[in-house]
Design a protein around this nucleic acid. Structure first.
Length: 366
DNA sequence: AATCGTGCCAACCGCAGACGG
DNA sequence: ACCGTCTGCGGTTGGCACGAT
């Protein structure tokens, strides 16, 4: 019968994504959510196949992705999980929030394999290399045969966690990932989504760690014609790039009107919690130094320059809000704070918040 | 300075499973 | 049960970056 190609390849672009394409894809997904990847390129105005869009989003553009090398702790988890699950990268990735299967696969092939071999461990069997050579090792079950009965696999994973990982955790390594360790039940995975999802939910589905490689002002390109909307190269990243009206325009999403006068305060509270989390994350990133004091140069390990810190922080917040279609709340927060008396006890007394407002008002006043 | 080799990783390819008609 | 479509997954590759010669 033959399988149809995932897309009509004629005229479709391949290879590395440009920032302009990223912008289009991000804007589309933020506005419409993830659905029907095949139609995404057409609707988003991209000359890519849907599959390529999906990969780009899931492996690179998703705002909740972590970046950078896997930590020692994560490596240990990967090794441990690989011993139990084999090359089931997506399963492994589901236990590492913010990491993609592709990333883990790459890291395994480029780093961990070598490390294990150096340590005299066969990366396939996870047994000492010397013992691997003598008896023909039972080949690691092929992917399709790893259909371990659910409970056995689950047991294995749980045992793995209990013996290795949790002991690591006792040595106070990345305690936040304890969240994920509590969710190993397959049923929970099925009912509530992956561990990743669960954790994301608990952390409001957002990680401040990561800033998409394209520039914020590029992301907030309005759909309509605008001076800055066409393929803005990502060269200038200073906070001055936020001085355009694009931010305001972009916050005026279609769902805004209903939100501004008809605020669901439950949602609002939830949003404020998220706000505080995000802010505290941004601040903690600065290693507890005073927010007004630039950190020592050697602490600037991230791509975010100091002067961009706040701009990026707000960009991230707005991103998140857009993601959840709470744009109206954002606008009402920034523009008509007086209308929000009811929330003053929550937001007042938060100097970070007030500084942010100050910055934003200055930007918007331009 | 130029060339070569290697490592790394984003992206692609093709298969398989899920799902709906 | 069959077929077509869509998505997810794992293996592979292309090309860039960087160090060695």
């Amino acid at each position: 019968m033959g399988r149809q190609p995932c897309c009509d390849k004629v005229g479709l672009k391949k290879g590395p994504w440009t920032s302009d394409e990223d912008t289009k894809l991000i804007n589309f997904i933020l506005a419409n959510g993830q659905c029907c990847w095949r139609s995404v390129p057409k609707l988003a105005g991209l000359l890519r196949c849907g599959k390529s869009c999906r990969l780009r989003w899931t492996n690179y553009l998703r705002p909740d992705l972590k970046r950078g090398l896997l930590s020692e702790y994560e490596e240990k988890m990967v090794i441990d999980l690989h011993a139990q699950l084999g090359n089931r990268w997506s399963k492994i990735a589901s236990h590492l929030p913010g990491r993609t299967d592709n990333e883990i696969k790459n890291h395994w092939n480029t780093h961990i394999k070598k490390k294990l071999r150096k340590m005299g461990i066969d990366p396939l069997t996870h047994k000492p290399l010397s013992t691997v050579e003598t008896p023909p090792p039972p080949p690691p079950p092929p992917q399709h045969e790893v259909q371990v009965p659910e409970n056995i696999e689950q047991q294995a994973v749980q045992q793995s966690y209990s013996t290795n990982i949790i002991s690591e955790l006792d040595q106070n390594k990345e305690p936040e990932t304890l969240l994920q360790l509590t969710v190993t039940d397959r049923e929970e995975e099925n009912n509530m989504g992956s561990t990743y999802d669960t954790t994301s939910e608990l952390t409001n589905g957002f990680c401040v760690d990561e800033v998409p490689l394209i520039e914020p002002h590029g992301i907030f390109v309005p759909c309509g014609p605008s001076p800055s909307s066409s393929s803005t190269p990502s060269t200038s990243s200073s906070s001055s790039s936020y001085g355009s009206d694009n931010i305001l325009e972009d916050l005026l999403l279609p769902d805004f009107e209903c939100a501004i006068n008809n605020v669901d305060f439950g949602l609002w509270d939830d949003y404020l919690n998220g706000w505080d989390e995000l802010i505290s994350d941004v601040v903690s990133d600065r290693k507890q130094t005073s927010m007004f004091d630039p950190p020592p140069t050697n602490q600037r390990s991230r791509m975010i320059l100091d002067q961009d810190c706040w701009a990026n922080g707000f960009f991230l917040i707005i991103w998140k809000i857009k993601k959840y279609n709470h744009a109206g709340l954002v606008r009402s927060l920034f523009i008509s704070r007086d209308d929000r008396e009811i929330n003053k006890p929550i937001i007042q007394g938060n100097p970070i918040f007030d500084l942010g407002l100050f910055i934003l008002f200055n930007i918007l006043a331009k």
